[in-house]
Design a protein around this nucleic acid. Structure first.
Lengths: 161, 161
DNA sequence: TATTAATAGTTATTTCACATAACCATTAAG
DNA sequence: CTTAATGGTTATGTGAAATAACTATTAATA
């Protein structure tokens, strides 16, 4: 009788690590799944030299031309100071422009340049394709339930912020 | 005729920011929902003086007494160097101990002290309670679908790591 | 109107979660 | 026995967030 391949000559005891307790939490599953999605997103955006934040900022500016930095920060759920570097980068690449608002000389109106709009369109298309591939294992009904559940969770947080 | 409350004397134009494009991505919903869950988790763990990482490390050690740091790093999907500080903290608080493995004097076997086990039990209970509250809007079937979908997404990433 | 308070954006600094490179000790392989 | 690989560590860097404190400007109020 052959000994089963001498699995571990080294005392390493390839005992699988159990994460049973953590698996009991929906949050744990969310983090793990999101890590996968995010890693994919980062790879997808790399050719465009966009990061998650520059990407979502750009998309929001394209979709909401003329909005203020504070509105954008609000929409992105980040603090104003963090937005500054993001916009510095986008502006430096001439993808968006900060234009003074004549009626309020404190504020800047954000708009995407033609180059920014083009890059945005391409990036969005790429992300769509990648996400479609990543979620190909889920049928439409499941995907809808997933999104609905996530929305509900998100909303339930808005109350006790 | 009363003018409708002069909604904005300032030109601020309270125009709602549209995130319609981003809402088209499941990943966006995942991030938003996870932010809520994570914020809740952080608040929940604060009384125990645990952060997400110290918490999950502790739980995994309790569930897998004797495991090595590299196994733990692997299970937590982080690099070994990052685990060092986490364990320094847990060991400093005498919640876990690093014991030399006699058969391999390079490695450390990680075990939770009684204090660590107790804290772990309490923390897990608290997180369970909080998560139950957070997910109270979802019925069991939806929750099951959610977890199944997230697991599938997670797995689909494991192939193309 | 003059002063105070609030707002928009910025700078500086910090924390946390992660990654890489390089190193020491020890063990395994050639 | 020399070389590889492994387990843990140190040092260091990056990206995503937050806070405090500042300037310029606009709104509120006394």
């Amino acid at each position: 009788m052959k000994k089963p391949a001498q699995t571990s000559a080294t005392t390493t005891d390839i005992l699988m690590v159990s994460d049973a307790t953590l698996r009991g939490f929906v949050g744990y599953h969310m983090k793990r799944a999101f890590n996968v999605v995010q890693a994919d997103l980062v790879r997808t955006l790399q050719p465009f030299e966009l990061r998650m934040l520059t990407y979502s900022a750009l998309v929001l500016i394209v979709d909401n031309p003329g909005l203020r930095q504070s509105q954008l920060a609000d929409a992105m759920d980040i603090e104003r100071p963090n937005l500054v570097v993001i916009l510095d980068e986008l502006e430096g690449r001439e993808l968006v422009s900060r234009d003074r608002v004549p009626t309020d000389r404190r504020a800047y109106a954000l708009t995407a340049t033609p180059a920014g709009q083009l890059l945005c369109k391409r990036a969005v298309a790429a992300v769509e394709a990648h996400e479609r591939a990543l979620l190909s294992g889920l049928d439409d009904a499941t995907r809808a339930t997933l999104v609905a559940a996530l929305s509900k969770i998100e909303k339930s947080g808005k109350s006790r912020a």
